[in-house]
Design a protein around this nucleic acid. Structure first.
Length: 656
DNA sequence: ATAGGGTTACAA
DNA sequence: TTGTAACCCTAT
């Protein structure tokens, strides 16, 4: 195969920085989870989620981190039965499958795995019973409960509860979902300790007050405060730090290279557009030196927290316990990493609670939460959460479901006091009943299509209509002439026309639909039809964008969707300038789709994100190495054959 | 395990 | 119906 692995050495600045960001946000997400600030957790995971779609310097530990995020976000939503990450499953069932993936990739002691599985299943039972979903509870009982002796007792108990339709019982009352969450977090943390992210280290070493514990060159020259409390690093200092850290992390780009690129970028960034990329707080027009425009400076500036940085100093070196990346040709991140909290791997699953508080400072490490929050609140990133997709059924087609409202879940409060585990955080178990999940929706200001893509060519979405299917083989797909004049009426219809390519700034509320993918020029950007539909009604169909986004599951066999009434939608600000926005709209890694339905997953449409992984995988390993690709990305429920088929489809559609 | 033809479930 | 993305089946 034509391995295109060759030039993997030269990483783009984006890849490198995305990796830093990735590490950072994963770290933040875990911290938030630990602090029971689940709102923040979802914000961070959504940032991570979108980051992953961009080119990123994938280290082998990335997969591990992604899996952890997937796992925790499913756990986090496990008490919301109307959400789904993978169609037919409840969040906790999805967590089980992610657990399988985790166990496959990492060496998890069998006993531990069992324990966790059991905990998840029992919790799922409790959740089902509490919410009166007895039939589902029964299913769970049948499909997941093993006959293992140790669970026999509970099984019996659950069985009788199900039979008697009892949704209250001392056992049910006793279990606390929040404890369960923390238990799961403990499991994850015992399994994999996330090293302090590069960005934080950098920040700390730069002597930033909020982070550093090390007196690092207290030379006042090293940093100077300027307006807004931002810290300015001297170029020299930065270079120094970079040198050390880049080596440690195996970053191959030299400082000057980076600087050059940044300068270059910085110039370009003058244009108003690039704002969405990085959680920009309103950027100070007052310019700063080129290097100040980089991520680092951005991270650096924030309110100075006078928090105890102490903890940072005393931490002891730490090593990653499990690595096991599929292919680790890259230097592992085995560098001693510091870790502040004391939770050691030996802690028993139950001792966690006390320790939790002591770790708060960790998350304070970077006081730039404000910025992050802004980010979260700001258009692009915030989305995530979940959305819902539902299959449209002719019958209930008429019933429009959900009207969405703009709702900031706890938003306002949150912005002001980002770090604090406000609202949701403390609530033990966010019961869906109480507040039917944070459904957030937003208005989308979108330009539906990527300009450039259009400019290039609006290839018809699929090759001409073939009259005969098989007879003409792949040649047509692969070789075919690029410019395909031919366009069926259908195509015409679907194809967004040039007129549209001029950033149609339109205010709309979409359901997941805002799929703008630069990656798939050919795609029939969800067009008017879709748009209208979304606007008015709901979530009904979405199959139009299917291939890219919503993993909508299709039909639900016979039964009408039960909880289907309220679906969640999600929308987001799509910056018109949205350079490369490539949000995986829907269901992605961490966010769930809702609209649960109990249908056998008949068809699982490919999400944008999955397609991105696939592309990246092919770029990295070459087409044909499906199994390798599959194991290198956090695919869930995709087989190598699925990947291969999807690739074939993508080729056919010229999405690649 | 992968390639590629055949089948199926949907949307239009 | 028809077209097709996702899936299935099977030879290699």
């Amino acid at each position: 195969m034509g391995e295109s692995v060759g030039e993997a050495r030269s990483l783009s600045d984006e890849q490198i920085i995305n990796r830093w960001s990735f590490d950072y946000y994963v770290f933040k997400a875990l911290s938030a989870f630990r602090d029971a600030d689940y709102t923040a957790f979802t914000h961070f995971t959504s940032i991570v989620e979108s980051l992953v779609v961009r080119p990123v310097d994938g280290h082998s530990d990335m997969i591990v981190k992604l899996r952890c995020m997937q796992f925790l976000s499913r756990i986090n939503n496990g008490d919301k039965l109307d959400l789904t990450f993978e169609e037919p499953k409840t969040p906790l069932e999805s967590a089980l499958s992610v657990l399988e993936d985790i166990c496959r990739d990492m060496s998890v002691p069998p006993r531990e795995k069992e324990r966790v599985q059991q905990a998840i299943i029992e919790t799922l039972m409790v959740v089902c019973l509490r919410s009166g979903e007895f039939t589902r509870a029964e299913e769970v009982l049948l499909t997941h409960f093993s006959d293992a002796a140790d669970s026999a007792g509970k099984r019996k108990l659950f069985e009788s509860l199900v039979r008697r339709r009892r949704s209250s019982h001392s056992v049910l009352q006793l279990s606390s979902y929040s404890d369960f969450k923390q238990d799961m977090l403990d499991f994850i943390e015992r399994l994999y300790r996330v090293p302090e992210p590069f960005l934080l280290q950098m920040l700390r070493r730069s002597g930033h007050p909020g982070v550093s514990s090390e007196p690092v060159t207290s030379s006042s020259q090293e940093r100077q405060k300027d307006h807004g409390g931002a810290v300015r690093l001297s170029l020299r200092g930065l270079r120094q730090v970079y040198g050390v850290l880049s080596e440690r992390y195996g970053v191959s780009v030299s400082f000057s290279q980076l600087q050059q690129e940044l300068e270059h970028q910085d110039e370009q960034e003058q244009s108003p557009e690039l704002h969405l990329a990085l959680s920009e707080t309103p950027r100070d027009p007052e310019s700063q030196p080129p290097y100040a425009g980089m991520t680092i400076s951005r991270l650096v500036q924030e309110d100075d927290s006078q928090l105890s940085d102490q903890g940072q100093d005393t931490r002891s070196p730490h090593r990653i316990l499990v690595t096991s990346g599929p292919e680790s040709d890259e230097p592992e991140l085995q560098t001693p990493v510091t870790r502040s909290h004391s939770r050691s791997s030996s802690t028993s699953p139950h001792d966690r609670s006390p320790a939790r508080h002591t770790q708060k400072h960790i998350r304070m490490v970077l006081s730039s939460d404000v910025e992050l929050e802004d980010h979260a609140a700001s258009p692009p990133s915030r989305c995530s959460s979940r959305q819902q997709q539902k299959k449209k059924k002719k019958s209930d087609h008429s019933e429009s479901e959900c009207v969405l409202m703009e709702e900031e879940d706890g938003g306002s409060a949150q912005v002001s006091s980002p770090a604090r585990p406000s609202s949701s955080s403390s609530s033990p178990a966010v019961r869906r009943s109480a507040r039917d999940t944070p459904r957030q929706s937003r208005m989308v200001l979108s330009s539906d299509v990527e300009l450039e893509d259009h400019a290039v060519s609006p290839p018809s979405r699929r090759s001409s209509r073939k009259q005969q299917k098989k007879s003409d083989h792949s040649e047509s797909a692969l070789v075919s002439s690029p410019a395909r004049p031919r366009r069926s009426d259908r195509d015409t219809q679907n194809q967004s026309q040039s007129s549209e390519s001029e950033c149609v700034v339109e205010l709309e509320v979409k359901d997941g639909g805002s799929c703008i993918q630069h990656s798939t020029p050919a795609r029939p950007s969800s067009t008017d039809t879709q748009r209208h539909r979304n606007r008015s009604v709901t979530v009904s169909s979405e199959s139009e964008e299917h291939s890219e986004s919503p993993a909508v599951k299709t039909s639900r066999r016979s039964s009408p969707s039960p909880g289907g009434a309220h679906k969640r939608r999600r929308a987001r600000w799509q910056d018109v300038s949205g350079t490369h926005e490539n949000w995986s709209d829907e269901e992605s890694l961490f966010s769930s789709t809702s609209g649960r339905s109990s249908k056998k997953s008949s068809r699982k449409m490919w999400t944008v994100q999955e397609s991105e992984w696939l592309k990246e995988g092919v770029r990295r390993f070459g087409a044909g190495h499906w199994e390798k690709i599959r194991s290198s990305f956090p695919f869930t429920e995709r087989t190598a054959v699925n990947l291969k088929d999807r690739w074939r489809t993508m080729l056919k559609l010229r999405l690649v």
